[in-house]
Each structure stands twice: as C-alpha cells, then as structure tokens.
Write a protein that binds this DNA or RNA. Structure first.
Lengths: 213, 213
DNA sequence: CTCCTTTGTGAATGCCTATTCACACTATAG
DNA sequence: CTATAGTGTGAATAGGCATTCACAAAGGAG
C-alpha cells in the first residue's frame, strides 16, 4: 500500500541499482522480479511500468558495470602518465571494484547473462572488448614511451592483464574471502611487470623489480 | 516404451556423460532432468533410480571435469621432464579441452554450479586448488632444475597460468568462436615464458623467446 | 476544481521445473 | 517355473517464475 509515486527516470535508476546490488550479494541466479520489487518496496508488476521485461533490467545493470570499468580506466589515466604505473593503478582499482561488488563482475563473464540471448551476448562481448582495447591503448603508449617491450602485441598484454585478476576473483568468492585477491594481485603484478617491461639498456643487468620475495 | 534395462552402474556413467555433453553445448542453465532423460531415451523419473537428485548428477559431472584436468597434468608429466615444456604442453591440452567441450570448463567457474549449495562450492574450490597445486608443483620443480626464476611463488605462477587461458576461453565462447583461443595461448605463452624463466647466466643477453612477433 | 496521464496494486495466468508414487515390465536367483 | 529385486513408465504434485490485466490512486495541466 501507498509507496510514493516517482517519475520513471528515478525509478529506472533505482531499479537498476537495486538489481545490481542483489546480483552482487546473492548472484544472478537469485535475481527475480519479485525480489527486486520487494527490495524497493514495490510489487512485481510495478516494475513493468519502467522496464518492459527482466531482460531490459539486466541490460541496465550491465551498463552500470561497463560504465564503471571505463571510469576506472579514465581515472588512472588522469592520475598518471606512465603506462606501467597506470596499469598498476588499474589493477588495484579493478580489485577494489571486485571486492566491493562481490559477484558483480562475474556476471559479465557468466553464462546466465547471455545463455540464450544472442543480442546481450554481443553487447557483453563488445563491452569487454572495449575495456580490453583501452588497456591495450595504455600498453601501446607504454611501448612508445619505451617502458614496455615493443615485441609483444598490446592485445595479448591486455588479455593477460585480465587474467591476472579474474580467476583470482572467482577463487576469492568461492572461498568465502579466504583467498586473498589483493595479495595475489600484488604478487602477480611483480611477475607481470617484469614480463612486459622493456629491457633496460642493451644489457646492463638492471632488474629493479626482480628482487627476491 | 521399452528402453532396455541397464545396470545402474552403466546408467550412472551414461547419465553423467550426457549431462556433461549437454552442459558443454547448451550451458548449465539449460540442463534439466527432462532434457537429460530425453537425450538418453528415458523418462525423467527414471533418472531417480540412479541419482537421488539433480544435484547428485551435477556432482558426477564435476567429477568428470576434475578428473580430466588432473589427467592432463599427468599426461604432460609423462611426456616431458622439463618444467617449462610441461607447462607449455599443459597449456595446449587445456586449450584443447576447452575447445572440445565448449562450456564445460565454465561450469567450474560459474556461479550456477554453486549458487546456493555451499557443499558443492567447497568441492569445486578444492578441485581448482588441487589443479593449481599440481601446476605449482611443476613450477617448484622447475625452480630446482634452475629453469624457472626462484624469486616467485609457485602458487602465484600457477594462478597466472590459469589466467592465461580462462578469460580467453570465455571470450572465445562469447564471440561464437571468432576470438582465437589457440592463437592467444601461443602469444600469451611467449610472454609468460619470458616472465618466469630463470635469467640465463649473469648477463649474456640471451633471450631466445623474445623475438619480434 | 476536474480530467487525464502516469504510476502502483493484487489477483490471475501459464510456463517450466524437480520430485514423487503407484504401477508395469524383465531378468535372474532359487 | 516362480518369486523378487531392479529398472523403466506416466501421471500427478508443488513450487517458482515472468508476465498480463483490470482497477485504484495521485498529481499536474487546463
């Protein structure tokens, strides 16, 4: 009874946010119209005043995630100009994002999100590719700066960048937080950093990040 | 009518295999008792003669996957004694496994597989950890052999090993095969190889795998 | 103030699902 | 041959789900 009436713009935003939150905490499988509605204080059918279907709500949630990823890239680019430092910062931001929104990222890589829906699959694929392209851009720029070895494809590097975090994130969630993503991120970064950095000089033996432990 | 009667041992095997195949092709979301039964030529209720629940069938499928992963490790250990070569072979086997069984691996990392079921979550976590431990073993042995740099933790390396493939596998599936996992695997391996190999001599400039392209 | 559009309600519908159960068949042990 | 345990059948149950629809309230435009 008597939930206050809000304009559809506000409601759409609210619904997407709530759906995002529910996915982050309970997983996408548990996301139902009823649950979203109840969380807001509405009745399920009310959601259809603002979204035509559950699919549309999911699309809105995915947009939220995609935007956030690109925001992270933008943030690190403003914070530093050195490519390696940018990547390191981005890694940290990504991990923070994961930790703050448990299951959220998994949705992007999850099957449910696009099981039957080919249109959404394409959208998701594009979203990930866009993120990867931004990372590759940073890498390419690092190669021009001479801080990243020139004999690797930026696309490969960006893919491995993702690989530094994503499986770890899953393990973190699987283990109920026992597995330490942050720690892993730091260790993985050292290895990754060494792998992609330009050899310093022709051969001067310098390897400042290859110190023990 | 009249599907021949088989012993429960054979049926269990058959059901697990069929369920695995269905997951690989249609994804776990589409896996239903009805579908499994129909594929075999049975009626849904017949499955309950051999498994107490759908969950038990899923467990059997996960065992299939886990076994296969460990088999891969065993195979590469028999095929070579050099740690780096073993890892390279394992990478290739893993990619083949992915290509042959599309969605199968995703299940292990997928949320559906353990959304509510904490027992299975633990089983899956253990399964992955076992696989990672085996890889870490190879790494540690490579460090003793002197072919892998000693200043990295084997656990970190094994995690990154997984990271070389898993996100790529997802992209491959998302893109309907457009994204080339095999190619990515090769390029990523070069980078990974350089990252973990022991420095050759104090400083002789040798970097045989750091050639362009 | 009144009308009409927008937003919220509650019940109903229809689909898909896992699971159960009484029954039927069949092979084999005795 | 016959009883019995093991296996397959078909119908029925029950729960969850997205979605629809006729109706109610609310609030701004005129």
């Amino acid at each position: 009874m008597s939930t206050e009436k809000l304009t559809t713009e506000i409601r759409k935003e609210q619904i997407a946010q709530v759906a995002f939150g529910l996915i982050a905490t309970h997983g996408i499988k548990k996301l139902s119209m009823g649950r979203v509605a109840r969380t807001i204080g509405l009745v399920p059918s009310a959601l259809y005043r603002h979204f035509a279907s559950k699919d549309e709500i999911l699309d809105a949630v995915l947009d939220l995630i995609g935007d956030r990823l690109l925001e992270n890239v933008k943030a690190v680019c403003e914070q530093s100009t050195d490519a390696l430092e940018r990547l390191n910062l981005l890694l940290k931001l990504h991990i923070i994002f994961i930790r703050e929104n448990q299951g959220a990222i998994r949705v992007v890589f999850s099957e449910d999100a696009h099981a039957d829906n080919p249109a959404r699959r394409r959208r998701l694929y594009d979203m990930i590719q866009r993120y990867l392209a931004k990372i590759a851009e940073i890498v390419a720029q690092g190669q021009e700066q001479g801080v990243i070895r020139p004999d690797v494809e930026p696309a490969t590097v960006s893919m491995m960048f993702l690989g530094m975090i994503q499986p770890a994130a899953i393990l973190w969630q699987m283990s109920d937080g026992a597995f330490d993503v942050t720690k892993h991120g730091e260790k993985a970064w050292k290895l990754f950093h060494d792998a992609i950095q330009a050899k310093v000089g022709p051969c001067d033996g310098t390897h400042d990040s290859a110190r023990r432990n």
